[in-house]
């Protein structure tokens, strides 16, 4: 589904991704871990099309399409979803209104008819139940004055509504207490399916107790330096990142 080859990206003069290779197949969950500043969030941003970053080399194929050629909104319409580390507050636009606009724009891109109000509300009710989110939150301005937990839950709700093929969760655990984390993770797990792939970007292993990955990759200084099964996450939790750093230095 997603093939990243030798992806290099920089912001201004600073080179952040230095050749990423990653293959994600349908239905798989990949965790990207690594110390702060290793380039995890950059990878998530580049995949979603954030324009602050310049891709200097490499390619990303998504379902056979050249992802890097597409605008962020086109990537969304192709089925990519980025759950933000810091969801943006949009005063004056309710989640409901926002999502209806987004869904219908995506449908337009796909050559489908717009959902009418009844169809949309029906779908919304269904997904609200799935991720356990309250109507009152959805009528409010998007993310405005939401708690950290509410923002993240809202991200998962949006994901449930938009039904992406590839969901990228960028530090979804940051700023959450354990209860909020569990609720958010439950939402993500309910959305797992054989057709949907997930990339979980996280610094800590604790999120992976709830969203169990098929593969774990360690990103360090802009490269994936280690990949392994889910047990690799436990090892990192136990030993920290220093041994990886040491291993990398040694190899160099």
């Amino acid at each position: 589904m997603l093939t990243i080859s030798n992806l290099q990206a920089s912001i201004g003069e600073k080179e952040i991704l230095k050749g990423i290779n990653l293959e994600v197949k349908a239905g798989e969950v990949h965790a990207i871990m690594g110390p702060n500043g290793s380039g995890k969030s950059t990878l998530a941003s580049v995949l979603a099309g954030r324009e602050d970053y310049e891709v200097t080399a490499g390619s990303v194929l998504f379902d056979g399409k050249d992802l890097l050629e597409l605008a962020p909104e086109e990537r969304a319409a192709e089925g990519i979803f980025l759950a933000f580390q810091y969801p943006v507050e949009i005063p004056g636009v309710s989640t409901t209104n926002f999502l209806r606009t987004a869904m219908n724009e995506i449908r337009k891109y796909r050559g489908q008819d717009a959902l009418d109000a009844v169809q949309f509300l029906k779908l919304m009710k269904e997904k609200m139940k799935l991720v356990n989110i309250d109507q009152s939150l959805l009528s409010r301005s998007l993310n405005e004055g939401f708690s950290g937990g509410e923002k993240k839950r809202n991200e998962v709700f949006q994901m449930a509504m938009l039904e992406p093929k590839l969901a990228i969760l960028d530090e979804t655990d940051s700023g959450l207490d354990i209860d909020a984390l569990r609720i958010v993770a439950e939402g993500v797990n309910k959305l797992r399916s054989p057709e949907r792939s997930t990339i979980v970007v996280t610094h800590y292993q604790r999120l992976l107790d709830y969203i169990v990955p098929d593969y774990v990759h360690v990103l360090y200084k802009g490269r994936i330096v280690k990949s392994g099964p889910k047990e690799l996450a436990f090892e990192l939790e136990e030993k920290g990142y220093d041994w990886i750093k040491a291993e990398v230095e040694y190899q160099q």
Binding site: G49, F81, I90, F98, T101, Y109
Partner: peptide, 27 residues
Amino acid sequence: EALFYMRSRGIPRAEAQALLMYAFAQD
């Protein structure tokens, strides 16, 4: 940042801008 957030959900730039400005005015 708000524009990117909206675009990442599938809303094209021009529509996102109009929606943001409309909300700004709604205040």
